[in-house]
């Protein structure tokens, strides 16, 4: 474990908790893409299937349980509890256009052709594009609540920190996983224009609004 991976995990945890609190406190999921949240729940489900069979450390197991629990709680709140506030008209990104190609790619490009490995690979590829419906929704609505931008910033930052973690691990442990690295680069690149808007607008106290 190195400081980049630890801060990356904490940034990820902050993002997930931030979103959960935003929906719970405001009792509304306006501006949140349910499709992205469903895909994140799918990412954690397919990635943490070894939760009970492959113990790595208390930290690892606790974080997996938290991620799984929070992502399902978020999906539940969006589609059940606060369904009335779900903005389906703007959450129109065709998720199947992501899930099907990612599923096919996981079959073709993986480290080992076994169910667990293919599902893990699927979760890595899916995570890299899972935020697209959310970013697409923001372009449709033309704006985002400030708390939502903080959520997105923390979420984008987590994988950027993981990229540094992989550089660190390559130099000090000789470890690298090309699938995770390439997908992590794609994932972080997708946030670049959001990062630009976040830093130039939100951090200057402005609301994030796109030229409609």
């Amino acid at each position: 474990m190195n400081v980049f991976r630890l801060t990356g995990d904490l940034s990820h945890l902050v993002a997930i908790i931030l979103l959960l609190l935003k929906i719970w406190k405001t009792r509304s999921c306006a501006g949140i893409s349910g499709k992205s949240q469903v895909m994140f729940a799918l990412v954690f489900t397919t990635r943490y299937l070894d939760l009970f069979t492959n113990f790595i450390s208390p930290y690892n197991s606790v974080m997996k349980v938290i991620y799984l629990g929070c992502s399902y709680a978020t999906v539940y709140m969006i589609y059940m509890k606060f369904k009335a506030s779900y903005d389906g008209n703007h959450d129109t990104f065709r998720a199947e256009f992501l899930i099907i190609p990612v599923g096919g790619l996981a079959f073709l490009v993986n480290h080992e052709f076994t169910p667990l490995e293919i599902l893990w690979t699927f979760s890595i590829y899916l995570e890299s594009v899972a935020i697209l419906p959310q970013l697409f929704m923001i372009t449709k609505t033309g704006e985002a609540e400030t708390i939502t931008t903080h959520y997105l910033f923390a979420l984008g930052l987590y994988r950027a920190l993981y990229l540094i973690n992989w550089i660190w691990r390559y130099y000090f442990e000789g470890f690298f996983d090309l699938i995770a690295i390439v997908a992590g680069c794609v994932q972080t690149i997708l946030y670049c224009d959001f990062f630009y808007l976040y830093i130039t607008k939100v951090l200057h106290g402005k609301k994030l609004s796109l030229p409609a």
């Binding site: 991976r5 990820h12 070894d50 790595i56 690892n60 973690n165 996983d177 995770a180």
Partner: peptide
């Protein structure tokens, strides 16, 4: 057995 290196990450 030792988990494949990448699988110790979240």
């Amino acid at each position: 057995e030792e988990p494949a290196a990448g699988k110790d990450e979240l």
